Simulated scan of single mutants.
Amino acid sequence: MLKQILIAVFLLLAGKSFAQQKQSTIRPGELWKDDQGKHINAHGGGMLYHKGTYYWFGEHKGEKSNNAYVGVTCYSSKALYHWKNESVALSVDDSPESLIYKGCTIERPKVIYNELTKKFVMYFHLELFRRGYEAAYTGIAVSDKVTGPYQFLHASRVNAGYWPINLSQENRKIKLKADDYGKWWTPKWREGVEQGLFVREYFYGGQMSRDMTLFVDDNGKAYHIYSSEENLTLQIAELTDDYTRHTGKYIRVEPGGHNEAPAIFKRNGKYFMITSGCTGWDPNAARLLVADNILGEWKLYPNPCVGTGAELTFQSQGTYIFPVQGKKDAFVFMADRWRPSNPIDGRYVWLPIKFENDLPVLRWMDQWDLSVFNEN
């Protein structure tokens, strides 16, 4: 009997050891289970590092719908391999009068910490219940605690009544409207987009804001980066000191370039942004943008992905880039493999960023751990 007990204990410990070993690597595209044994439900996510812990926020999805029937989820980890389910950080509302009424669309939630107010601030792309993608709102919520609950503050389009600082006075004064350019995708229409026809169209009501991310610079200034102008142009907007509103200072990036899914980071004084094209739920080739000033000129570079699968960003679309604490030049590219027919089964593709000629490079890895950054 004692022998059987010892064998059982050995097998139990061996099983735990094996499970821990399995959890000590990141395996892009495979099922990733939390501490409850369930596939992590945090799609289109973002990462916040606070007081020694990483917090992963993302969209909670169901089996049949991409709509928000639960809200924004939060998971925590000390070392990025295994994650604790911290439950729902922001819940949708049961009131039909609420802008975040259950069944609305909440996408790409990101959370940053404000050192002045000591509050955690969440931004997300919001579309209203049963209104398709016409609203193009930014939603904002705050909490005193990193895991929530977050209190919904407000949602709207952004920077109403303000011009982009890099739109010329001449283009601001053009009287032509979108309908005056005729059929989309013609050379005349493309020229109109570059000249700011949609900026003028939505000047008073506010600029569209869909796929988005947040970035806090070294000086504490925060920025909201989002796909705007019918998803044709990226905009980068400065936030107020408390991070809960826009200051009205913003720029346009790659007008007419059809970019979405922005993910941004800073290294050696330069700003890098990886985006995708606009092909719905289907993957496409990533793009790279680089600038010396976040509100300055951005230069477009070729696809940062290389090797097999690079032309489709390894069957994924980026959502966030975050630095690994305690390691130099260590950044992780977070991406999603969308499963629109079964959204809850969407997979996560995390890859380490390497640098060649001072530019970021992404290569596929079946599995990896943080020791990969020891080679930098």
Score class of each variant (00 low, 15 high):
1 M>N: 05
10 F>I: 13
11 L>C: 14
14 A>R: 08
17 S>F: 15
26 I>T: 02
29 G>Y: 14
31 L>H: 12
31 L>R: 14
32 W>N: 05
37 G>L: 12
41 N>D: 07
43 H>T: 10
44 G>D: 01
45 G>D: 01
52 G>Q: 14
55 Y>S: 02
57 F>R: 10
58 G>V: 05
64 K>T: 12
64 K>E: 03
76 S>R: 10
82 H>W: 00
87 S>F: 11
90 L>F: 09
92 V>F: 13
92 V>A: 08
95 S>K: 09
97 E>L: 14
107 E>Y: 10
108 R>D: 09
110 K>C: 03
111 V>Y: 03
112 I>W: 00
115 E>Q: 10
120 F>I: 02
121 V>Y: 01
122 M>Q: 03
128 L>C: 08
137 Y>R: 03
138 T>L: 01
139 G>C: 03
143 S>E: 12
144 D>F: 04
146 V>D: 01
148 G>M: 07
149 P>T: 12
152 F>I: 03
153 L>N: 09
153 L>I: 14
156 S>I: 02
157 R>M: 10
158 V>H: 01
160 A>Q: 00
163 W>Y: 12
163 W>P: 06
165 I>W: 04
169 Q>P: 09
179 D>Q: 14
185 W>L: 14
185 W>A: 07
190 R>F: 07
191 E>D: 15
194 E>D: 04
203 F>I: 11
205 G>N: 11
206 G>W: 07
206 G>L: 11
206 G>M: 08
209 S>F: 11
212 M>N: 12
222 A>H: 00
223 Y>D: 02
224 H>N: 01
229 E>R: 01
244 T>V: 14
250 Y>P: 01
253 V>W: 05
253 V>L: 06
260 E>F: 08
264 I>H: 00
264 I>N: 00
268 N>F: 02
271 Y>H: 07
273 M>N: 03
276 S>V: 00
278 C>Q: 11
283 P>A: 13
283 P>Q: 03
286 A>L: 10
292 D>R: 14
294 I>W: 00
295 L>F: 15
295 L>M: 15
301 Y>A: 09
302 P>K: 13
305 C>W: 12
308 T>E: 15
311 E>V: 08
315 Q>D: 07
317 Q>D: 11
318 G>W: 00
321 I>L: 04
322 F>V: 05
322 F>R: 09
328 K>D: 09
331 F>N: 00
332 V>P: 07
334 M>W: 09
335 A>R: 03
338 W>T: 02
339 R>A: 10
340 P>E: 15
350 W>K: 06
353 I>V: 11
353 I>G: 06
353 I>H: 03
354 K>F: 13
357 N>Y: 15
360 P>I: 05
360 P>C: 05
368 W>H: 07
368 W>V: 07
370 L>Q: 02
373 F>L: 09
376 N>C: 15
